[in-house]
Write a protein that binds this DNA or RNA. Structure first.
Length: 645
RNA sequence: GUCCCCGUAGCUCAGAUGGAUAGAGCGACGGUUUCCUAAACCGUAGGUCACAGGUUCGAAUCCUGUCGGGGAUACCA
């Protein structure tokens, strides 16, 4: 049990007579925000004062007099308007440490098990993974590991996009443009090339069609602006109106220039322009390939069956680099057989109705419909998602479903969850674990200089390469194999940590130097703190197993030992708080703080040189504990903790 | 048009259900190494929490409005 929980339990009886909502009051007991106020503080007196009809300090005093904390804390202090400050007794802390020492869960008690499905990563198999898949994969995997450790039954499911328009493009590309030799040698690279090619040609034709329309609209927009300026009117309103018009103008200009770029890209290449001329209706044609696939066309199905394993292999390569494993990889195609029935069921329950030829569910309060069938009869990802919900509940008995997906899709999930509840899954807990965008240095979505999305695999390789350079500079004495292992841990760990330590809802700037920095709030810093602890064991030739077998007694002799131990005792709270909000960043905070305190301890509490055998042993135990805490914490984030670096 | 999110130190970001003098990292400045990994540590400076009202014992946090930025908005997934 965590220290905080213990303290709260002690306060419970003393608060019983004061408020109807004891838990709320207990929630106002928290770690002290400043060490000078002690270790913990209770803030409930102020809010209870009015109901009690007494000044807050009197309320605080009354509770302080009643609560039984003599063994745990120094005498309580009432401070300021009515804060109760608590300082733990050294003897109690030393004693509490023993329960950590003998526990490989570091004091974390398993939570009541629930059945989770966590849906993350979800790339499109037709195209290589890019930086946009980083956050879902990394955050999802961290939550996956954390939930399992906490005692839940978790099914991780990679809901890959293997059935959409992109596949039609690949099939079309394969039928018309494949280079058999290249396909033989590197099938996935060739398929990716085909996808890019067809996509580019489709873009070209669509742009050709769009560009004149955009030009007209742009001219109209300019006219509108001029008219508005000429008309004048209320200055404030005019300003607003002009601003809006200008914004639209900018957007139009951007769309036009992007269309022109797409046209240019084809026109400047003779080979490309020839292909473009040769396949004027490539857009419809590749859509048709998709439709044929969905309709069960034998040839397209055969191609799909041939491509899929190769595409999955390619994804697997990235997941191996990331250290991610899924229990299930049930993509969109898997749910194809169930889609018609989903729509049927929604219709029969009166939830879906016809609207402009499409079948839609309308949720009041939302303008946008939840479209489950298009007017051409095709199903949408809404349909697939509903089929997925039903399948998971029926097959896995899922009680809670987590979707680790970009925050821009929040509206979709809002509609999905509400529709699913009405459809009969109101007992299931749904969470859209949303996250922001990875930005480049310019504050815009992270792109290459050429404007393309950044490939995920090359990003990971670059991280490891950069890390290897740093490792080699900092510790040339390591042998090559170890250096490579450390580079993997530092490089991949650095990318993951940088992502996880931000509040997931925020956008963040991707910055190599920051994420691989050796000091500051980085994976490297935390890993290094751990490696130093291992260094002590190595140097002192300490066998950790026999350390664990000896007397488990911590004696606190200075402030850095105390601060470190107190921190280690909060692991359970940190993990539970992170899980309650599905925020790995709360766990990274714990790790950084632990590493900080471990390093401070390392700085001013000599271990091997300590002459007093009891103190030396106690410090070794603290080293062992910190190292275990960091290793465990990092592992829950999917980050390696090398013993030497 | 409608809806959602954001605006905190020079930079990048934390601030869990409102709590004491708003934090961290980087950068800047100053210091620390005969000592278990200096990939480190210690210290200093730096903020009108976009702005204006309101709610209350107390607001970066809740409410309203203004300004600024981003996103979503019916047949892509």
């Amino acid at each position: 049990m965590s220290v905080l929980t213990e303290i709260r339990n002690r306060f419970r009886p003393a608060l019983a007579g004061l408020t109807a909502d004891v838990d709320a009051a207990l929630g106002m007991i928290k770690p002290a925000q400043d060490a000078k106020f002690g270790d913990f503080q209770a803030n409930f007196a102020m809010s209870l004062a009015k109901a009690a009809g007494k000044p807050p300090r009197e309320v605080a005093q009354q509770v302080a007099d009643q609560v039984q904390l003599d063994d745990l804390c120094e005498p309580l202090e009432i401070a300021g308007p009515g804060f109760i400050n608590l300082r733990l007794k050294q003897s109690w802390l030393e004693q509490a440490a023993t329960s950590l020492l003998s526990d490989d869960r570091l004091g974390h008690q398993k939570l009541p098990a629930r059945k989770y499905v966590i849906d993350y990563s979800s790339p499109n198999v037709a195209k290589p993974m890019h930086v946009g898949h980083l956050r879902s994969s990394v955050i999802g995997n961290a939550l996956d590991r954390m939930l399992r450790f906490a005692g839940h039954e978790v099914v991780s499911d990679n809901h890959i996009g293997d059935w959409g328009t992109q596949f039609g493009m690949i099939i079309f590309g394969y039928k018309n443009f494949v280079d058999p030799a290249a396909y033989q040698a590197q099938p996935v690279a060739e398929l990716a090339r085909l996808y890019r090619l067809v996509n580019q040609l489709c873009d070209y034709h669509e742009a050709l069609e769009e560009a004149p329309k955009l030009e007209t609209r742009l001219a109209q927009q300019v006219a509108k602006i001029q008219r508005a300026e000429a008309d004048g009117g209320d200055p404030k309103q005019l300003k607003q109106q002009l601003k809006k018009l200008q914004q639209e103008h900018t957007e139009l200009k951007e769309s036009l220039s992007s269309a022109q770029k797409k046209i240019e890209a084809i026109k400047t290449g003779p080979a490309l322009s020839q292909l473009a001329a040769q396949f004027p209706d490539i857009v419809t044609a590749s859509r048709e390939e998709t439709a044929k696939l969905h309709a069960g066309d034998a040839e397209n199905q055969r191609l799909w069956d041939e491509f899929m394993p190769k595409c999955l292999d390619a994804l697997q390569g990235v997941y191996e680099k990331l250290g991610i494993k899924f229990d299930k990889t049930l993509g969109e195609s898997f749910y194809n057989p169930f889609l018609a029935d989903v729509v049927e069921s929604l219709k029969s329950k009166g939830m879906a109705r016809d609207s402009e030829g499409a079948a839609c569910v309308f949720i009041e309060g939302n303008e946008a419909p939840f479209m489950v069938q298009k007017k051409n009869g095709a199903f949408t990802y809404a349909t697939t998602d509903l089929a997925t919900v039903r399948y998971r509940v029926e097959q896995f008995g899922t009680q809670a479903m987590l979707y680790v997906v970009d925050k821009r899709q929040s509206e979709h999930f809002q509609l999905l969850f509400e529709t699913a509840r009405r459809w009969g899954f109101s007992g299931v807990e749904f969470h859209h674990v949303s996250f922001g965008t990875v930005l480049g240095n310019d504050g815009k979505p992270f792109k290459t200089r050429a404007g393309d999305t950044v490939g995920l695999e090359s990003l990971l390789d670059e991280a490891v390469a950069r890390a290897l350079k740093i490792v080699s500079e900092n510790n040339p004495s390591l042998d090559e194999t170890t250096r490579q292992t450390v580079a993997d841990a530092v490089g991949i760990g650095g990318i993951k940590y940088a992502d996880l330590h931000h509040n997931r809802e925020s956008d963040y700037k991707f910055d190599w130097d920051k994420m691989l920095a050796t000091s500051g709030d980085t994976a490297t810093y935390i890993q290094y703190a751990n490696a130093r602890m291992h260094g002590i064991f190595r140097k002192g030739q300490i066998d950790r197993a026999s350390l664990a077998a000896g007397p488990q007694k911590i004696v606190l002799t200075n402030a850095s030992e105390r601060a470190l131990l107190l921190q280690l005792l909060s692991f359970e709270d940190a993990l539970n708080a992170a899980l309650a909000d599905l925020r790995p960043s709360i766990l990274t905070q714990f790790l950084f703080e632990t590493a900080n305190r471990a390093t401070a301890f390392h700085q001013d509490s000599p271990v091997l040189k300590e002459e007093d055998a009891e103190i030396r042993r106690s410090r070794l135990l603290l080293c062992d504990l910190s190292s275990r805490a960091i290793t465990l914490g990092l592992s829950l984030l999917g980050i390696a903790a090398p013993q030497q670096m």
